[in-house]
Every structure is written in structure tokens, then in C-alpha cells.
Amino acid sequence: MSDIAVIGFARSPRSEALVEVFDEVLSSAGLGRREIDFWCSGSSDYLAGRAFSFVSAVDAIGAVPPISESHVEMDAAWALYEAYVKILAGEAETALVYGFGKGSAGDLNRVLALQTDPYTVAPLWPDAISLATLQARLMSAELRPSEQNLGTDGASAVVLAAGDRATRNRDRPAWITGIAHRVDPPGLGERDLTTAPSATGAAADAGLTPDVEVAALHTPFAHQQLLLRRALGLGDDVRYLPDTGNAMFSGGLARIGAAAEEIMSGRARTAVAHATSGPLLQQNLVCTLGGTR
């Protein structure tokens, strides 16, 4: 069991609002910018339409003197995982994790086709909504995928701290009691699209139990809620946090933040957050949180 907690969370519907989001999350964590040992972000060049789009985001940090920093080309939930591991390894005590994406900059429905196999699928330009419809029909789901939740703009940030650093500024840190992630095979015909083995496996690795009080699931499309509840073994007595939209590359991190807020506010003693990445829930991360270490 680790000794690492979420002690701050902030989000904005504007992907450009990193300066404000950092101010807010640091203030909620009671830390100054220079007290952050490690910074880690998640974003995608293809959302912005240019190489190295994450580089200019570093400007919002004010990285002079230089900082210890890293970046994943994934939803920032996986940046949180990297930061968690960094703290667990004893290489940092505090970390600020952020994600940002401007889903509205391009035609997301087409852009996401580039996540599929580059030889046999992507050259056909399958749009993300149609792929989701293929999945929904296999599940006999009534819900017709719509563009509504395909992906929005946004930025989120979470502050992590270890041990005493977590309790110093927070009465009720949201302790990370388990975190794990896995990926499934990419082939659309190579896996049962009505299941998410990687989510099930990650939940087992994270030690998720069905008696968890609150769940925040990252589901770009409505039918995926049902799929994931089943995959994670969660029932109807779990309180599900409302879907707040799929902010590109920060939506998964925001689920972790939202679940942590339930703990930090005292509204729940245990919570689980889930993040997804890739076409049709190919890659999944599960993070369990609790009010006690």
C-alpha cells in the first residue's frame, strides 16, 4: 500500500487556461509553484495539428529555474500514473499533473481515425462516432452515439503528495489505495467489443472491490457506462458521479480529480476513478481512493 494522496484538483473548460488552473490547484493544495518536485502532463499533437504542441504549455509553468518534468502522449490520467510511480520510487515528494486539449480545433470525428491501424483501417477514415455505433449495436444498446460527448475543450490539474507532505496541508487527503492500467489488442475484430478486459484487469490490479461508495467513469459514449460498470464489477448501489464531458486528454485525469474531491470533501470514504484512451475503450486505467491510508 502506498502513501501517496491527491491533495488538490482544478479544471477549466478552456484548454488555454493553464496559468489559472495551476494557480487554482496549487492554492487548493496549499503549495507554492516551487514546492512541486515533479511536473507531468498529457496531451496530443494531433489535437492541435502541429508537432511538439505540449512544449508551449511548459511556458505556463514558469520553468525558470528549470524543473523536473515529463510528458505522455496520452490522457493525463497516465501522466498521474507516471508521477505516482516517481513518488513511489522516492524520486519526488510532490507532483503536479496536468492535461489539456482543444477538441474543437479540428474535426475530432476524423482526427481520431488516426488512432486506428495505419495500414488496414485508418486509410478508410472510420469516424469515431461510427466506431462507437458498431460497439453499441453489438451490445444491443438503445443509446445512439452522438457527437455531443465526442470530445470537448478543457484543462485539468491534480496535485499529488507523499505521506506527511499530504497531511500537512489537507485535513482529508484522498489517499491512492490502488492504481493500475492495461491495454487491449488494437484490432477491432480481435477483441470482444462488448467487454473491456483491460479495465477488468486494471481493476483487479488496483484492488477495486464492489463495495466502493463512489465511482467516476470516463466514458466518451453513453453505452460505455454500462459496459464499464460490468467490466469493473460495479453494481447499482454505487453512487456514480455525473458525466461532465470528455475533455480531450484531461477527461480521465478529471475523473480522478472528481473522485478525489468526494474524499477530500468528506462526502465519501472510498471512491474509484476510471480513465480510458484509444478507440472503443482499448486502454484503461483504474485508480482507487480512500480517506484512510
Binding site: 496559468v19 495551476f22 509553484r33 511548459v58 511556458d59 505556463a60 509553468i61 514558469g62 520553468a63 525558470v64
Partner: peptide, 9 residues
């Protein structure tokens, strides 16, 4: 631009 050295508007 945002000051890259200080991270303020």
C-alpha cells in the same frame, strides 16, 4: 505572451 520564466499572464 505568458511569461515563460514566471508562468504569469
Amino acid at each position: 505572451r505568458v511569461c515563460p520564466a514566471d508562468g504569469v499572464a
